[in-house]
């Protein structure tokens, strides 16, 4: 039986703002149920405002849902206790993904030093191994982010996410800001590393082409709800929901 790494069970997230009469509510996640087994990537597509980014933050434990349960490895989710290093993320903007004041090596080492202790410089071997894995030269460890290209920085962000050998990674528009020719390199990297390490992944993107390439299953979100969740091939061959069809037409 395949183990579910992450499960969202009837999760809803409501944003409230304003006071009295001006009080407004926005349902960013409306009764979302989904699961991601080990070694599998779930693609999450939808337009901005569909709730996919909120779903990502809830899955990462950055945001507490209004109702529902989030389970990680079968246990209710409690960030900071027991999950350190087991959940990681790669974000969109390669310019903002790394601290400009730290060397690349220190950035990559940070999650490991948080999970296992030790200074940033005490995990050199692990850092060099990671650089090998993401296809960067070892000398990159000494460099600062501004000396790297966008694609290289995104590889570093992948290395940082993988150094603790996490069970679950969220890729939030992780290739959207890259040039087309570099995007393909990073997408291949993600696929290869998943095959090697067997992590579960949530791949959030508005780019249906990229999502199709890396995902095993695809969930389409709209206005906070999942309108369709299907195996990738089935989804692209015969989308069931009207909205999915419209999205695919725009591809």
């Amino acid at each position: 039986m395949i183990e579910n790494v992450l499960e969202l069970d009837q999760v809803s997230t409501v944003f409230r703002s304003g006071w009295g009469r001006g009080r407004r509510e926005l349902t960013a996640m409306d009764d979302i149920t989904l699961s991601v087994p080990a070694g599998e990537t779930l693609g999450l597509v939808g337009e901005s405002g569909s709730g996919k980014t909120t779903t990502g933050s809830v899955a990462l434990g950055l945001r507490r849902p209004t109702s529902g349960t989030v389970r990680f490895l079968g246990r209710p989710f409690d960030r900071r206790r027991g999950t350190a290093g087991q959940i990681q993320a790669v974000f969109q903007n390669p310019n903002w993904s790394l601290n400009p004041r730290l060397t690349v090596g220190a950035s990559i080492a940070e999650p490991l030093s948080a999970a296992e202790g030790g200074s940033l410089s005490s995990h050199e071997d692990a850092v060099l191994t990671m650089l090998d894995e993401v296809g960067l030269h070892r000398s990159v460890a000494e460099r600062h982010p501004h000396e790297l290209s966008g694609g290289q920085r995104q590889r570093v962000a992948v290395a940082r996410a993988l150094i603790t050998r996490p069970r679950f990674i969220v890729f939030d528009e992780a290739v959207s800001a890259l040039d087309v020719s570099v995007q393909a390199q990073v997408l291949n990297l993600i696929k290869d590393l998943q095959a090697q390490n067997g992590f579960a992944a949530l791949f959030i993107s508005h780019d249906l082409g990229a999502v199709r390439y890396v995902s095993h299953r695809i969930a389409v979100m709209r206005l906070g709800e999942i309108v369709e969740l299907a195996e990738t091939e089935r989804f692209y061959d015969a989308p069931e929901h009207d909205y999915s069809r419209r999205l695919l037409e725009g591809m």
Binding site: G151, D179, S181, A184, Q185, N188
Partner: peptide
């Protein structure tokens, strides 16, 4: 498999 171009612009 995606054939990627090596290097960057």
């Amino acid at each position: 498999r995606l054939p990627a171009i090596t290097g960057s612009p």
